[in-house]
């Protein structure tokens, strides 16, 4: 049973958990405030948006693509949510459907252009980044729309659980995402496209439709992120999620997903997100300045990738310890 769990989570999992524990212990020792319920509650409330976006990003990186538009798409879907609630007085369910559909639509736009004309996703999603950000300003009239208590339930603590429904929903997304990746046919197809797309094409499987679906998923999850973000702020901010795509990519890569495609794990992305969140909260609490916070975060990202590369090199780390004896 233990072996099956370890097999399900993958070998990288334990290393990441270790890093996370070290960080938590370090900040716990260096700051008096770190080990308080408030710290963790704050993190748990800020996390969901980044987390669901990072799950979508994991899938995109696995098919050897990249999605730079997620931060803007999140802002745009959030803006639409605020607009229909405040200006059009829609009821909550319809407003949420509109918000998620817009995210999905943006993702479909990315995926369609990438798959139909074979344009690198870097360029297409860079374009979408601008389009969606502009759209968010247009929808909100460049102002933050205050929504108030209508959406507060998303980030309010659930009874008995002391975490928000947004957090619970994000965890469900992680679990479903991991199952889809490692246990379903579509998951295998994604990994295959990332590791050799010509072989997939010659297997009689449509590479285009896999690409479109993955970008749709990333867009949809950005829409979900928009919903969480609006719930957290209780307003729709057209400036929300600036630079979020980079945090998401960083979290995914720390989690060991390969930028070259073909390898990745959603659970490890969760750990990557936690590592980034703990690092940022912890650094703030021990009084690190904003610039030095950024320097340290950058160093951690690069270090994580170096460790990952070393471990996946042929023969693994064992190679470095094996003495090369030449006996005459």
């Amino acid at each position: 049973m233990l072996i099956r769990i370890a097999d399900f989570l993958g070998r990288d999992f334990l290393g990441l958990v270790l890093v996370l524990c070290v960080l938590i212990v370090f900040f716990g020792l260096s700051s008096d405030y770190f080990f308080t319920a408030l710290t963790f509650a704050t993190m748990a409330n800020q996390l969901p948006a980044l987390l669901v976006v990072a799950v979508g990003m994991t899938f995109v990186l696995i098919i050897a693509g990249i999605d730079l538009s997620v931060g803007s798409v999140m802002a745009l879907s959030g803006a639409l949510l605020g607009f229909v609630l405040v200006e059009l007085q829609w009821s909550i369910p319809y407003a949420i459907i509109a918000c998620l559909s817009l995210g999905l639509l943006c993702g479909f736009g990315n995926g369609f252009v990438v798959a139909r004309w074979g344009i690198p996703s870097f360029i297409v999603t860079l374009g979408m980044l601008e389009i969606a950000r502009g759209g968010a300003y247009l929808v909100t009239g460049s102002q933050t729309l205050f929504i108030g208590s209508k959406v507060q339930w998303i980030s309010a603590p659930l009874p008995l659980l002391s975490v928000s429904s947004g957090f619970v929903a994000a965890m469900i997304v992680v679990i479903l995402g991991q199952i889809m990746l490692s246990r379903t046919v579509f998951g295998r197809h994604m990994i295959a496209v990332g590791s050799n797309d010509e072989a997939v094409r010659l297997s009689g499987i449509s590479v285009r439709s896999i690409r479109v679906k993955v970008f749709c998923l990333a867009g949809f999850l950005a829409g979900v992120g928009g919903l969480f973000q609006v719930g957290y702020l209780q307003s729709a901010d057209p400036n929300a999620g600036v630079g979020l795509e980079l945090s998401a990519i960083a979290a995914v890569v720390i989690g060991g997903t390969s930028l070259a495609g073909g390898r990745g794990s959603v659970i490890n992305t969760l750990l990557g997100v936690l590592i980034i969140a703990v690092l940022q909260t912890g650094l703030a609490q021990i009084g690190a300045s904003e610039p030095s916070k950024r320097v340290i975060t950058g160093v951690v990202i690069i270090a994580a990738v170096i460790v990952d590369v070393l471990r996946h090199r042929s023969g693994g780390i064992a190679r470095y310890f094996k003495a090369f004896r030449r006996t005459p």
Binding site: S203, G204, S206
Partner: peptide, 30 residues
């Protein structure tokens, strides 16, 4: 496209295993 061919029950084992056949980074199982 190959999608249509497979739907008609045609399969092709390509000559170039490295570029067109095998997923080198993936497991034997996969």
């Amino acid at each position: 496209s190959p999608v249509d061919a497979v739907a008609h029950g045609i399969g092709l084992i390509p000559e170039d295993r490295k570029q067109q056949g095998v997923f080198l980074t993936q497991s034997i199982r996969f």
